[in-house]
Design a binder for these strands. Structure first.
Length: 274
DNA sequence: CGTCGCTCCTGGATGC
DNA sequence: TGCATCCAGGAGCGAC
């Protein structure tokens, strides 16, 4: 599932490939993917726009277009944004096709149809629901040790649930939340407010570390995730807790266990994480 | 406001 | 072999 490292990898590959290309047509096979504006307005406003660059905010892709417009894309679980020659076979679950002026396509593919596209004026993007309430970018200065420290103080939520809360910090999903807790040696069911200073420092460093490593290895492909060129990631081979239930902990050898925490599956080492 | 549980969806895995 | 059920999960929403 695309989390910050996967979305960042799509951002980079998409910008490399598609910047400078003009959208000269659009085919919409599944209208509900487009949330705003209406389908007619979306179609009318996006035609003849040129892709200038691609930014990212949390798990949102911000495709900057000419005319001070932004195509805001959230891939959710199984969304893919693929840049490919127009003659490439159109696979099942292809919902939107942008025709570009170089005989290439930008295709939105999404098996579970959870993803969303929004088109907005640049100055409106920060106020879109979902983006307006996002917490700081974890790899930038605004996400400081002091911020994390203050945020966790007196919080009664389980730390795992807090890491998944995008209003705390933007971009973590189930994979990197589990990995960060493993790296920090913190049990997912710990109440956030009970972490001591040393644990909070470890968690702060671990969040940055696992996300940076995830980007370095171009994301995690468990099943569906690919970048804008259709390439799989490599971080799945380096996961230490997520998806490793029943396998030995790489640190102590005890078996990794899986348990629902706050409604989400969590994999952790019962020995190393406390 | 904080927290919880439900919902959207498909297809792979599991159960009988 | 076939059919039913469960599970994966990001984020919005309603309930309390």
């Amino acid at each position: 599932m695309p989390e910050l490292p996967e979305v960042e990898t799509v951002r980079r590959t998409l910008e490399e490939q598609a910047a400078g290309k003009e959208i000269i047509g659009i085919e919409i096979f599944m209208a509900k993917i487009i949330k705003m504006p209406s389908i007619e307005e979306f179609r009318r406003q996006i035609i003849d726009k040129t892709i200038i660059k691609v930014d990212r905010r949390g798990k949102y892709l911000l495709v900057r277009l000419s005319g001070d417009m932004t195509l805001v894309v959230h891939l959710r679980m199984t969304g893919q944004l693929i840049y490919c020659p127009q003659e490439q076979e159109i696979i099942k679950h292809t919902h939107i096709i942008f025709n570009l002026n170089n005989a290439y396509h930008l295709r939105y593919i999404d098996q579970r149809q959870f993803g969303t596209l929004n088109l907005a004026a640049n100055q409106e993007v920060a106020n879109l629901s979902g983006i307006r309430t996002l917490g700081p970018e974890p790899l930038e200065g605004e996400f400081s040790k002091e911020y994390l420290d203050n945020y966790l103080t007196n919080k009664k939520t389980k730390i795992k649930a807090l890491l998944l809360d995008q209003t705390f910090v933007a971009g973590l999903g189930n994979i990197y939340a589990d990995e960060a807790l493993f790296t920090a040696g913190i049990h997912p069911e710990r109440l956030a407010g009970t972490l001591n200073s040393s644990e909070k420092s470890r968690l702060y460093m671990a969040i940055k570390e696992v996300l940076a490593e995830g980007i370095k290895y171009r994301g995690t492909t468990l099943k569906d995730y690919v970048d804008a060129e259709g390439k799989r990631g490599g971080f799945q081979n380096r996961l230490k807790s997520y998806g490793r239930e029943g396998k030995p902990c790489v640190v102590c050898g005890n078996n990794i266990i899986k348990k629902k925490v706050g409604g989400r599956s969590s994999s952790y080492c019962p020995n190393c994480q406390s």
